[in-house]
Design a protein around this nucleic acid. Structure first.
Length: 185
DNA sequence: TTGAGGATTGGCT
DNA sequence: GCCAATCCTCAAA
């Protein structure tokens, strides 16, 4: 399966968020492979988006959002959860990233069940902090290049028939923007 | 230097 | 439906 090239992420953040639906998120742990199809994403941009971590200015945490595209942005929140994002923006814009909110388990389901201490497949990776736990993604994976065949990368996946747009989840500002995207297959 | 709050989840009522 | 868990980040003083 082909890894998505850097240029894929060199477009408007909202476009990339939609295009990432149906793609495959692959996590390699030693010689084992865990993967899932991306089924829900959200776009977070820059100064036009008050909900974005990059809204105010560059800091130690959000600095990768201002850097090269196709890089992972992992952050820690609520004292117990990690969320996984991919830096994506057109070249004119200084910052932006796509939050991966849900995936559908593909390979390594048994390993995901171990990581989550849960058997129920439909609840394994259907939330932003659930999928990082299932794929064992932590702040160790902050700033890694997803266009290389490393621990985490994104490949071509399935065809998407229809995309549903809605308000983003769990934010206070910027709710009027319909930048949450889900697969409707 | 400090403390308020967070792109969430799961368990309990 | 409600709320605790839990700790890192950043804005404000």
């Amino acid at each position: 399966m082909n890894i998505l090239p850097r240029e894929f992420y060199q477009r408007d953040t909202v476009i990339v968020a939609k295009k990432l639906l149906g793609k495959k998120l692959v996590r390699k742990i030693g010689n084992q492979e865990i993967s899932g199809i991306i089924t829900e994403t959200e776009a977070y941009r820059h100064e036009d988006d008050p909900a974005s971590h990059a809204f105010r200015k560059i800091t130690d945490r959000n600095k990768v959002m201002f850097g090269n595209v196709g890089i992972s942005y992992v952050y820690f929140t609520y004292g117990m959860h990690y969320c996984f994002n991919i830096v994506a923006k057109k070249s004119k814009v200084p910052a932006g990233a796509v939050l991966i909110r849900a995936i559908e388990p593909d390979k390594g389901i048994k390993k995901m069940q171990e990581n989550r201490s849960l058997k129920d497949i439909k609840n394994l990776t259907n939330g932003p902090a659930k999928l990082t736990q299932a794929l064992n993604i932590t702040k160790e994976h902050y700033g890694i290049d997803l266009t290389k065949k490393s621990e985490i990368h994104i490949t071509e996946g399935i065809k998407v028939k229809k995309i549903a747009e809605s308000q983003r989840v769990g934010i206070k500002k910027g709710k009027e923007l319909l930048w949450n995207f889900k697969i409707m297959n």
